[in-house]
Design a protein around this nucleic acid. Sequence first.
RNA 1: CGGGAGAUGGCAGAGCUGGUCGAAUGCGGCGGUCUUGAAAACCGUUGAGGUUAACAGCCUCCGGGGGUUCGAAUCCCCCUCUCCCGGCCA
Length: 420
Amino acid sequence: MIDLKLLERDFEQVAEALKKKRIDEKLLLKLKEVSGKVKEQKRLLESLQAKQNANSKLFPVYQKEGKDISQLKALLAQNKEQIAKEQEALRELEDKLYAIALNVPNLPDSDVPEGEDEEHNVELKRVLEPKAFDFKPKEHWELDAIEWIDFERGVKISKSRFSVLKNGASKVARALINYMIDFNESHGFSEYTLPYLVNAKALLGTGQLPKFEDDLFKIEGEDLYLIPTAEVPLTNLYQDEIIPKERLPLKMTAYSECFRKEAGSAGRDTRGIIRQHQFSKVELVSITSQEESDAVFNEMVECASDLLTSLGLPHRLVMLCGGDLGFSAAKTIDLEVWLPGQGRYREISSVSNTRDFQARRAKIRYKEGKKNILAHTLNGSSLAVGRTLIAIMENYQQADGTVAIPDVLKPYLEPKVKIE
RNA sequence: CGGGAGAUGGCAGAGCUGGUCGAAUGCGGCGGUCUUGAAAACCGUUGAGGUUAACAGCCUCCGGGGGUUCGAAUCCCCCUCUCCCGGCCA
């Protein structure tokens, strides 16, 4: 949630920043107005409550003195009625406030480039040269000689956009998960194993709800949803907590399956396993003080980039422009891996700093001296496992249709499995 | 899924015959005295959010929601969660 005090104090700054995310100033004006009304209503209600409290305390005194209390009683009964009325009014205003406020995205950082969509993202750097093939590289779903992915049977037992890995793909995917987690641990992230089902409060905390309910799989009759990313359980581990500052930054990593309805993705990436309803991912989440979030952000980007480099996968870093930035993010750097079959770079990781946006929703704070301060939360895919698998398949494919294995993965595939 | 007990401040744990209770006490934390230093002992301090120039005052919060009352942590109803017993199960 955005800072309503900032909105009140410096409307121009907020409006200017959110222009990058194409948020209409009118909406913000409305928000400011409602926020002001809430405050005013609260003041009114509180003065009535103060009166009620003060007068109620007179009862034991009057009784001791043997005074008549009937008049006082009548007075307070009347006041009570008014309190109920004003309380109802306040509730309505607050509902209105949250209905707007929870749907306003985070403010982009000042260094986020302007732009409509992904066309305007800014490439920061490229790492590793794509290697030259002396044959025409195939796309991953064309490498059918090795029988690594079974699309038809995945659909048969579930529905479209579900698939089955087998043979070498299963082995490599599992090796990747272990490798990534070990890699992250060596960079100071500690490992967690988490629930794949979380409640609405958690999803509200990280910003998936209330606005993006359509993208989530919900369990019927329960207050539970399948997680769209481990970011949700990981970040919310600390919801409603006040963390001593000395314990920051908290750096966490977790493997999980991710589940997304991808309601708006019809027709895109329908072939292969680029875009699935279920996919594996190793995630990074950090909770930091306000001062150190930039430094940790860079560490996370570097961690993901180095991981790709260690796997020998050419990739580039891209700074998202305002229009392409996610709802909760103040700043995002995507890592795009080179897919020779497609002949282009495709997103494989995305690292975001949400500043205090999620922390305000989830009430994640830290204590500095006597003060409680909203933390900064950051998240990033270490790497999406399925897409990494694709990248390995396409970048390491041989002329005969088999796939070589990156050296760093080999220890994770012992005892040797036959990969072909 | 059935039966029983419970949910209070960082933790433990009183209060629950309704009224100066945001809440005793212990532990922990912080500050101090003492000490070469530390421990012990002693003194003080120590929940969160909002309003505000203000750590003055005021309001809200004793799992969540609703009710009774002038007044509720305390009484009533609903929900959720936790623990114990049984059932089922990896």
